[in-house]
């Protein structure tokens, strides 16, 4: 067996990779909107796609689901190239791109029937099942134009799940959901990944949301991937605001200033100091403080996800 077929077999049979994106690029007119984007999404994981407005999340998703053609690069879903094996690739995908736009003049049920007919092998029982899954039983026979945004999101998800996909792609799914709805969706997505082994690809512009929902995350900024890591790692290496309640405050201040620089350390009350540092630094500094004979009454770490996010993405405004 020569090496070419070996590589071919590897990419075809490896079950773990649900979605593989390699060297993706998109140029519209003279502007390059997406530049060399690569990542893999594995079966059973929730993968976040994080980036500020205009970073290129929706554009990437449109390429993944075959709505627009990449200028360069390759996208495989379940081992099938989206360009050359569109049908096989799309059999494995359920998606919502931007808003869940469905036919407003039809009922929820008629919409589901419409998309079931396009899949070919979906029974009425399966439609009933997904309706129950997204808890839309009560309103499913009403026209979609009478639905609230949250109900449309649910119907959109029901539609995406109809064909028992292996990969679920959701573009900012929490848009328009109330806090209870967001939480419900989060739990729902985690359940799908854990119990049914779905790979879920979720785009978002909120780090906090991604932190609660995702296993891994790709951070996109200005059309380029900044990094692909686990969410824990980002938080651990990100800068937090830490508040120490200590005594004697002078000794503590000296120890902290030595390690972090005098500018970084501020006294905000008689026994309270604050500084910005990463989680790992916090642990070692605590040891140093105790070593210097300082009593620590409390340490409060404030996750500054917003700042962290801005820092990672370069804090730029819309490109």
């Amino acid at each position: 067996m020569n090496s070419r077929t070996e590589v071919f077999l590897l990419t075809r049979t490896s079950p773990a990779v649900a979605l593989s994106v390699q060297g993706l690029q998109k140029t519209i007119g003279k502007r390059t909107i997406i530049r060399n984007v690569s990542f893999d999404v594995h079966q059973g994981e929730v993968f976040g796609f994080l980036g500020p407005n205009g970073a290129g999340k929706t554009t990437t998703i449109r390429m993944i689901v075959g709505l627009i053609a990449p200028t360069a690069g390759r996208i495989c879903i379940g081992g099938h190239d989206v360009r050359s094996e569109f049908i096989e690739a799309m059999r494995n995908v359920g998606c919502i791109v931007e808003n869940p736009e469905l036919y407003k003049y039809m009922t929820g049920w008629q919409n589901l029937e419409h998309f079931a007919a396009m899949l070919g092998d979906v029974t009425d029982e399966r439609i009933q099942e997904v309706v129950q899954l997204v808890k839309m039983d009560a309103r499913i026979h009403d026209k979609v134009k009478t639905y609230s945004l949250g109900m449309r999101q649910r119907l959109g998800i029901a539609q995406a799940l109809l064909g028992r996909p292996k990969l679920l792609i959701l573009d900012e799914p929490t848009n328009g959901l109330d806090p209870a709805g967001i939480r419900e969706l989060r739990e729902f997505i985690r359940k799908l990944a854990a119990e049914e082994g779905l790979a879920v690809f979720v785009s978002s512009h909120m780090l906090a949301e991604v932190q609660m929902m995702c296993d891994r995350v790709a951070i996109l900024s200005g059309g380029e991937i900044v990094k692909v890591t686990s969410v824990e790692e980002i938080v651990a290496n990100g800068v937090n605001r830490v508040e120490w309640n200590v005594e004697p405050v002078e000794t503590a201040r000296r120890v902290l200033a030595e390690a972090l620089g005098a500018d970084n350390v501020q006294q905000i009350a008689a026994t309270k100091l604050i500084a910005s540092l990463t989680q790992t630094e916090t642990a070692s500094l605590n040891e140093k403080l105790i070593g210097a004979g300082v009593s620590i009454y409390s340490v409060t770490v404030q996750n500054q996800l917003e700042e962290l996010f801005l820092e990672i993405t370069g804090g730029e405004s819309i490109a």
Partner: peptide, 14 residues
């Protein structure tokens, strides 16, 4: 104009 084209064209149909 209704945006439904995105769903229509992402089904496994040519």
């Amino acid at each position: 104009s209704e945006g439904t084209i995105k769903l229509l064209l992402t089904r496994p149909v040519k």
